[in-house]
Design a protein around this nucleic acid. Structure first.
Lengths: 209, 209
DNA sequence: TGTTTTACTTAACACTGTAAAGTATATTTG
DNA sequence: CAAATATACTTTACAGTGTTAAGTAAAACA
């Protein structure tokens, strides 16, 4: 039945169209400031047709959230080429940082905004698979660093959380506009690479001690 | 004119009443999920009377935001008793962490939510005084550590931002429900103190190197 | 006593997410 | 081929949001 196939394709097309419009609006105006009606207007459909393809606004959020992780993982995919675990850790950090700088609204969606992750809680069984996978990648790299003697920590997972915390904090203070209001002019522009370098230098010093 | 005084007092009373109701609702339901009408209902006034005392919802936000910093600074006030700068830095971190754990909604308001800080941008001249003051306190303590030879960094302000980043990241990953979904069960409960200790240990190791 | 000010309320506007009911077209069935 | 049904979408509607403008009753002042 080619007809049903075509229908399925049409349906999928509209779903993609919604997602594209939603993405464009979210990334420009932010999630809270984009309404279902805004999206509907952009694609020239009635607002309620969006509900035929997505359960609610959070569902739309999740779709873009997943897209974000696909994009981030695509950036991470070059990492396998970096053999040395410490170099890989640094490269990972740089990629993460660059991703956040280039896609701040997406980053906010993925790591800051609470609504979507809370709606995951609803269906209790569900997990935050995307986040878990990325975190495991970090943990394994750190495990590699420890085994290669770059530094040691009593608990690898805790070390991974510590390092992720620094990266996330640095980025989200910037994204949430808390750092420009606090820093002197010299450091406002490039605080992210500067503070990243300071952290890396600190990690490097752990080797010789 | 005692009458005008009494009137001023009455007016101030209502303002406080609004603020108290707003605080209670914000801290339970969160900022986004608390409406002006909710607050009005709680104090048994019409919604519009709130606008006689606060410009808009962001103005209410700012008031609570300032209250938050007063509370945090009150906690910080014991720090002057800690003479050793490194010990003071650690104590500062613990206080900051405890404040966040005990007042997560307030922390979100002060350091994560974007709306209020963005509305500061509007009136260009205005600054984030509360944040700036706290950050300067951190910077000075770190300066003390450097001078006492605990560690060295090429730029104190960058070091302060790095350390604040870690603290903020650790806390906000927790508050934004990103960590419970990623960590193994052993670490879910007490990841904050654990990762804090890992960071402190790292700082301590910098001395001997 | 009449006028103005103060402190508040009611009504209204332009939004929001979302559910129920209606409609036109396409497909399946008798 | 005609009637019944399913599909894909729209219209309408509800209950909520922040916020403004107009109305009102009481107090203060002239």
């Amino acid at each position: 039945m080619g007809i049903n196939d075509r229908k399925d394709r049409d349906k999928e097309d509209l779903k993609k169209k919604i997602l594209t419009a939603a993405r464009e609006l979210f990334l420009v105006k932010g999630f809270e400031n984009t309404s279902i009606r805004n999206i509907a207007e952009k694609i020239e459909y009635s607002p309620t047709s969006i509900y035929l393809h997505f359960k609610d606004k959070d569902d739309l959020f999740h779709a873009l959230h997943s897209e974000g992780f696909e994009l981030l993982n695509a950036q991470f995919s070059t990492l396998h080429a970096v053999r040395d675990p410490f170099e890989r850790l640094i490269a990972m950090g740089r990629i993460y940082m660059q991703f956040a700088v280039e896609n701040p609204e997406l980053y906010e969606l993925m790591f800051i905004h609470t609504a979507p992750i809370d709606s995951l809680d609803m269906h209790k069984g569900e997990e935050w698979l995307e986040g878990k996978t990325s975190f495991e990648g970090l943990t394994m790299t750190i495990e590699g660093c420890i085994q290669a003697g770059y530094f040691k920590f009593p608990n690898t997972e805790v070390a991974a959380y510590m390092i992720w915390s620094f990266m996330h904090g640095m980025i989200s203070l910037k994204i949430c506009h808390r750092c420009a209001k606090v820093l002197s002019e010299v450091n406002q522009e490039d605080i992210l690479p500067k503070s990243f370098d300071a952290f890396v230098t600190m990690l490097e010093q752990l080797r010789s001690s």
